[in-house]
Write a protein that binds this DNA or RNA. Sequence first.
DNA 1: TTCCAGGAGAGAG
DNA 2: CTCTCTCATGGA
Length: 294
Amino acid sequence: MMQIQNVTDFSLKYTLESGQSFRWNRIDNAYYGVVEGRILKIFQEGTTLHVENSDDEDEIHFVPFLRHYLDIERDVPKILTEVNNDAYMHRAIEKLWGMRILNQELWETVASFILSQNNNVPRIRGIIRRLSERFGKHLTLAGYVDYSFPNPDALAEATEEELLACGTGYRATYLRNAAQAVVSGELPLTLVKQMSYPEAKQALMCRDGIGEKVADCICLFSLGHLPALPIDVWIKRIFETLYFRRSATHREIRHFADSYFGDGAGYAQQYLFHYVHECPNWADAEHLSLIEST
DNA sequence: TTCCAGGAGAGAG
DNA sequence: CTCTCTCATGGA
């Protein structure tokens, strides 16, 4: 057991339940998840995080790693001030205060969001769990059992049938090709990490099965590129409803969000995305009047 | 039964 | 360039 103290402006719940990671399970008020080959159990009590780790790691190295994973080091309140442009955003920021955008391991993020296309969160979680059980490493923490996310080699060597058996559907080919590209060096992940946002996005989009939306998810949820704006069916619907009041193209939405939110567009997007999932009445008259008033 | 899900690619126009 | 159709899967 270990503690990380003075963690301010942070919500473990909203950070881990906002659809950016598919690997966390809540049991009572503690979160169990697999992060880069170890099980972590995290419990938040005010500004203190209580952490248990299946690996016996030196705190000197582990604490900075975890703080970076949870994006605790970043001045998020400053970013939220910059995107707090109207009463609707104010409502979302207030409701989800402390939600942060994770910095997840790159390969797992690439694979996970390849699997996310035309799919829903519970099913994505199931696919990733089955892939990990089948191809990952068995891990335990105080009786809790989980599996590491399979490395590229394991998925590159897997047969199409084995991947299909995990429920990947037609995305199996995309997943296998991406794994093989990482192994062969065609998709050089260590270099991608060094690239600028436009460079990284383009390098990722060269792969079959990674379009603009998935590339933006990877850039935002793994590489820390906050201008990245994943436009899925929800974000499209939200921007059309709140800011356009009509149907709009992806191009229009991207242009609007860039100028309206600036470099923090990724954070703004995440607050809007999760807010509408938390509030089924997100588009009622009372909510829409928040836009009118500003 | 049909519709939908943190979409992308191929093909037509 | 944009629009449309299809892709595998399972829950609602």
